[in-house]
Design a protein around this nucleic acid. Sequence first.
DNA 1: ACGGTAACGGACGCCGGCGTCCGGTTGGCT
DNA 2: AGCCAACCGGACGCCGGCGTCCGTTACCGT
Lengths: 205, 205
Amino acid sequence: MTEVLPHLRRSDARDNRERILEAARTVFAADGPAVPMRRIARHAGVGPATLYRHFPTKEALVTAAFAGQMRACYAIVDEGLADPDPGRGFTSTIERLCELHARDRGFAAAFTAEFPHALDFTTDRERAVKSLARLTRRAREAGHLRADVEPSDVILILMANGGLQAASPAARVKASRRFAALAIRGLRPPSGGRLPGATRRTRGL
Amino acid sequence: MTEVLPHLRRSDARDNRERILEAARTVFAADGPAVPMRRIARHAGVGPATLYRHFPTKEALVTAAFAGQMRACYAIVDEGLADPDPGRGFTSTIERLCELHARDRGFAAAFTAEFPHALDFTTDRERAVKSLARLTRRAREAGHLRADVEPSDVILILMANGGLQAASPAARVKASRRFAALAIRGLRPPSGGRLPGATRRTRGL
DNA sequence: ACGGTAACGGACGCCGGCGTCCGGTTGGCT
DNA sequence: AGCCAACCGGACGCCGGCGTCCGTTACCGT
């Protein structure tokens, strides 16, 4: 994991790398991933050249900066799968993912689809998506979700959650919580129990 | 309404104004309101100066370009209120608003909150929001929505709907439809009937 | 302690968007 | 038909972000 990169042979380089990553996390979280590279450099107390040497492209920086958040996502989904109660596992996963995304604006954008073609962790992302799908099917087959709920609906909800923009992070989190609760209700069977009969059809779709 | 502006005394000026507006609608709808002014000018076959003469600021252009969409929004909400069935009126309003916003990316952004302080139709927007609130309360009091649903939840849903980004407009509309159906279910009382007893509590909030 | 080199960061040129000026064009009125 | 002003749009200078070069600094190994 902690391989010796060709550079980083010196201590100050390692320090700078860390300072850059921390600055990136802070700034991205606050203002989204669209901020100019130089602002991150300034915030890290570092020249632009140094920033570019460590992370030649913004995508590289984003990938490195959000590796931790990405792991947190996996952890959330895995813990959901580990929950013996499929319904509770599903619910808490959605809630926690929504909150995570609300807290970190930059990560939300990156996770959803900031860089069109492929962020470096696209593969990892797919793994998480697959787990999420398993989690969803498990909850559905246990009768905690309507029969017509599909894994893609969860993605839909997560994307929609990303649309919740607000001035303060606190307001974002609050809105996100409310939204998650609402969306989860939308996925549950009519009476909350299991398979209470035919699923009522909804207009369109 | 069709007052004689100080300029526009000549026919070519009126023509250009129309061409600019049409170009703006097209480009904004396709790529959102962040596109450079010059691209709209080019698309309209007009020089930058002409564009700026007609619409000194991007906000002015957006306002003018989306006046029609804005009216469509009013119409949708008003028709919802005109529906004798409060539940159906509410449902179809949400569905139609979501679809409208999905079709026109630029308008969605503008309507929600593209320009922080005040788009020119902020007042109008507030009127629409008020009507939406009335529509919501009416549906709730008729027992078509859960007792704890608030008008702000509808705003929440519309904002969330704005987070549904997709490459093609068609995909956006499709996702938006699915999402609207899901969200509406999230607002309905457990068994779809009216006031079937105490509202089940949800974790948090 | 000292040489060599990894690493730093100020400074540079490039690009694209912005808003405006001004010489040329053209519609409208007599 | 001919004038005049309303109107057009190419061209300009400004700004801010980008990515890179190179002289300087300071870390590390002997």
